[in-house]
């Protein structure tokens, strides 16, 4: 069953008087439970593609469906609702809210979902334990290492049980050992909870971990490789 479907997606940016075509007609179908990496050189369009799948931006042309929701039919408010309940994000530079502790950062998503305080706390503690941060609940982001921050970001992304987690270069700011630990953790979550992960990356280690590798070049899918097949 497809959780993400893109058909004939193009995206053109206007930079001053110059039009930049970031995507030139992308067709992509991602099955539920995938562990997929969008790879390609800088400027190939992989982050743009990830933004479109996440409903952060709208395509110039083409259709996008996520968990059977047709983005073309949704307004900004509905897209915000979809992101809140169905999509988790992990960013390259962690992007935690600096004034909140690790626990509060994870709770914040559930607060927006109007989940009660007791349940919020219990679920946040559980998911932070899952990513190995039980002892660091009250630490603020600046008191955590890069790897720990990214684990909090993953916990925040998965705490509300999203249909997909979109991770933009999640290991780019981490050393290889920390990056590997993070990928192992995400792979476990994928395997145990069936969470769909889509990465954008040019890190070979991420590509190695991915079960499906989609190479983007010049705004098009250049290669789509399912490992082990």
């Amino acid at each position: 069953m497809a959780i993400v479907e893109l058909t004939g997606v193009t995206k053109t940016y206007q930079q001053g008087k110059v039009s930049v075509q970031a995507l030139r007609g992308v067709d992509l179908r991602v099955e539920k439970g995938s562990f997929l990496a969008l790879a390609g050189p800088s400027g190939s369009g992989k982050t743009t593609l990830l933004n479109l799948i996440g409903g952060l931006d709208r395509p110039s042309q083409g259709d996008i469906r996520v968990d059977e929701h047709d983005f073309a039919r949704m307004n900004q408010s509905e897209l915000a609702e979809l992101r809140l309940f169905k999509i988790g994000f992990v960013f390259q530079s962690y992007n935690l809210i600096p004034v909140l502790s690790a626990l509060e950062n994870v709770e914040f998503v559930m607060l927006l979902q109007r989940i009660g305080a007791a349940e919020r706390r219990q679920r946040a503690e559980a998911v932070l334990a899952e990513v190995g941060l039980s002892g660091l609940l009250e630490r603020r982001p600046l008191e955590l290492s890069g790897g720990q921050q990214q684990r909090v970001a993953v916990a925040r992304a998965i705490v509300s049980g999203p249909a997909i987690v979109l991770a933009d270069e999640p290991t780019a700011n981490l050393d290889s050992k920390t990056g590997q630990g993070l990928l192992e953790m995400m792979k476990t979550l994928n395997a145990q909870k069936g969470v769909t992960f889509i990465f954008s990356t040019h890190d070979n280690m991420v590509m190695d971990y991915a079960r499906r590798l989609v190479l983007i070049r010049d705004g098009r899918v250049a290669e789509d490789q399912v490992k082990g097949s």
């Binding site: 408010s77 992101r83 809140l84 988790g88 998503v109 927006l112 925040r156």
Partner: peptide, 9 residues
């Protein structure tokens, strides 16, 4: 931007 991405209105 992050807060809006995760779904804040």
């Amino acid at each position: 931007g992050v807060m809006m991405a995760i779904g804040i209105r």
